[in-house]
């Protein structure tokens, strides 16, 4: 297992796409936090650090969807067969790939978190939320990135066609993000909307608020949508982006369960896969 990990990690350190993505995330995170300082200097707007800092949570899924299939793609030419012939178990091969992708996702997160934190704390007023809560939020985004890495380890390890896995991974990340944003959009609908009455002169004057037909009232439907928003990676990505600190233990527990569950499912199917 140690030799497998050494080989996979050696490929990780040499991966150009990983370091280009890490560089992009570092510059992006630094720029977006620097905007806060510029707004305070130029327009006297003092938004909190958390209003921009967690933007990387929205991008990390897409980048992991790009990196992991490219990392694991070369496995299918000779790697998998050779490793099996050398006597390594399928479980060891899959776990090594999973840990490598998990490490890649942590590297990507760190490349966004560290510059953002450094610039945010030095130049802007820092987090408005308590520091322990901010630390938990950051840990939550790390767990979220592990879920993405588990998902985008499963796809390349089960589908041998590299182009198909890259395409499927990117489309899946976009689809999950869209689904998550939609769930959160449904939950954010207000109970009432402002109505207006048109007077004889043609002016609109505010009237009593009317019930919003798109509002999800308390009940099983709202709970189901809330569950999807809290537990699916797309929903969590949106919630971290807007620095939503509610139900954080549930979100982190869901990420942990998803990481273990997707990893186990991938391992199970990989053991049965016919390696040609």
């Amino acid at each position: 297992m140690r030799n497998l990990l050494a080989a996979d990690f050696a490929r990780l350190w040499r991966s150009k796409s990983l370091w280009i993505s890490a560089g992009f995330l570092a510059i992006f995170s630094a720029r977006i936090v620097l905007n806060l300082w510029e707004e305070a200097r130029d327009y006297d707007l003092h938004a909190s650090l958390e209003s921009r800092f967690f933007t990387y949570a929205l991008l990390i899924g897409l980048l992991i969807a790009v990196i992991c299939p490219l990392l694991l793609g070369p496995e299918h030419t000779a790697g998998l067969r050779n490793k099996t012939v050398l006597g390594y178990s399928r479980a060891a091969v899959y776990l090594s790939a999973l840990l490598t992708c998990a490490a890649a996702s942590i590297i990507l997160c760190a490349s966004a978190i560290l510059p953002g934190l450094a610039i945010g704390i030095l130049l802007s007023s820092g987090f408005k939320m308590p520091v322990p809560l901010a630390v938990l939020m950051i840990l939550g985004t790390l767990l979220l990135s592990l879920v993405w890495s588990a998902l985008f380890t499963l796809i390349p390890m089960l589908i041998p066609n590299r182009a198909v896995t890259s395409t499927a991974a990117i489309l899946l990340s976009l689809g999950l993000l869209l689904w998550g944003m939609n769930c959160n959009g449904m939950l954010e609908q207000p109970p009432t909307t402002q109505a207006y009455t048109i007077t004889v002169n043609g002016e609109a004057t505010p009237a009593d608020p009317v019930p919003n037909p798109d509002y999800l009232s308390e009940g099983p439907v709202r709970e189901m949508v809330q569950f999807q928003a809290d537990c699916l990676p797309g929903g969590q990505a949106y919630q971290y982006w807007v620095a939503n600190t509610e139900r954080l233990p549930r979100k982190m527990a869901a990420s942990a369960v998803l990481f273990v569950g997707i990893g186990a499912a991938g391992l199970l199917f990989f053991r049965r896969r016919d390696l040609k």
């Binding site: 897409l62 790009v66 299939p69 490219l70 793609g73 590299r162 182009a163 896995t165 890259s166 395409t167 990117i170 489309l171 976009l174």
Partner: peptide, 14 residues
């Protein structure tokens, strides 16, 4: 490379 072309096209689009 089909895989790299797919990644390039999808990333360009997004």
């Amino acid at each position: 490379s089909k895989a790299h072309a797919a990644v390039a096209c999808l990333l360009t689009a997004v």
